Amino acid sequence: MEKVKGFADWLTKWFTAIVVAWAVFNYFVPATSVWAKSYTGYLLGIVLFGMGLTLSLDDFARILKQPLMVIVGTVAHFVIMPLVAVLLCWIFRLDGPLAVGVILVGCCPSGTSSNVMSYLSRGDVALDVSIGILSTLCAPFMIPLLMQWLASQYVTVPAQSLFINALKVVLFPIALGVVCHMVFGKKIEKVTVALPIVSQVAILLIIGVVVAANQPKLFSAATLMAIPVVMLHNLSGYALGFGFSKLMYKVYPKGFRYAQQKAITFEVGMQDSALGATLALTSFAATPLAAVPSTFFSVWHNISGSVLSSWWRNHDDKHAIAHDSANGEKGSLKADAEDHEAVA
């Protein structure tokens, strides 16, 4: 079991580099993954089933304990990222499948990587997880609604297909995982050790399918334009998510403190790009190019998230900012220590 956990930790640590290497390999040898194109829905279902296995009723109860912050964070995610996607498509004059792909990834729920980044930056992981759960549960309803509203100018949006596919690959696997957790209890812990490996292998296969399916067009001038769009989309999400949480601190300072601001920043800026790629390949099967922005996003947001979480941690240490400070006040860590000494 220790070897499995060790391999899972290694895979997580080097996942971004492995994704890049795997994508390059599939570009030159597309037959490696193209066979899995019809199974992408099942692959993502496995990932979300694994997510369900790690959830308990306490995770859902946590949403009810702090509903305002979780709902506000979820609403911010589904407002900021889709609208930024549309704005960037307009600025960069993207159209057709690429514009649809950028908007689709913008309409997706937050990615599970945000939980890791929030933890590394000393953010409120519990809030991060809660927003992630709620946004994922809302995805089958929000994605078709937002796509119909924002992307119908580019292509005919198959709203019914999006809804059914999202329902199949999101809600059903998560619900099944939660039920299994409830039935088998602690026995599930023996399985959950290997879940990161299973999930990451499934995501690698999905990325391989996207690269293989688009190999002839992947590095055309039009496709490469999606790279700066994806980067700006993600970075704008961080900036607007942080700005929004700072604004909410002025409205409700007890709830939107420094740790919560970090969590909302990552929850807004990081997307479930694997879901975006899967829905693009299933609901927009005639134009697989729509899955490319999700693949670019998958690589980029792991890089940017790692850099931001590392910078945030170093910034807090340098300025002695306590992780539980009200609004990131410099010297708050020293002030807390002095207060403890005074009490002692």
Rank of each mutant, 00 (worst) to 15 (best):
A175W: 06
V47N: 05
P67I: 08
S110C: 15
K217L: 09
E189W: 01
F244C: 14
K65I: 00
A85V: 02
K5I: 10
I227C: 02
V20H: 06
T295P: 00
A337D: 11
V209W: 01
H323W: 09
E341P: 00
K65E: 15
S118L: 02
F141M: 15
A151L: 08
W311D: 00
E329F: 10
P97A: 10
A337W: 10
A126N: 13
K190I: 00
S130H: 08
N214T: 14
A285G: 02
M182R: 14
D317V: 14
Y238L: 15
F141W: 14
G73R: 04
Q160F: 10
L308H: 08
L11D: 00
A85E: 02
Q260D: 06
G96K: 11
Y119Q: 14
R257T: 09
A166G: 15
W22L: 12
S121D: 07
V299K: 11
T156I: 12
G111D: 07
H323A: 15
P173A: 11
Q200F: 09
V343R: 14
E341F: 12
I80A: 11
S325K: 11
A239L: 15
Q66C: 00
N327Y: 13
V178I: 15
A23E: 02
Y42I: 11
F92E: 05
L176I: 13
G41Q: 05
V47G: 03
Q260T: 12
A239E: 01
A285Q: 01
L195R: 10
W22G: 04
G305R: 04
T54Y: 06
L205D: 00
I188D: 07
I46Y: 08
I174Q: 10
S135Y: 13
V209N: 01
M81P: 03
I18H: 02
V47P: 01
F242D: 02
K168A: 13
V129Y: 12
M81N: 08
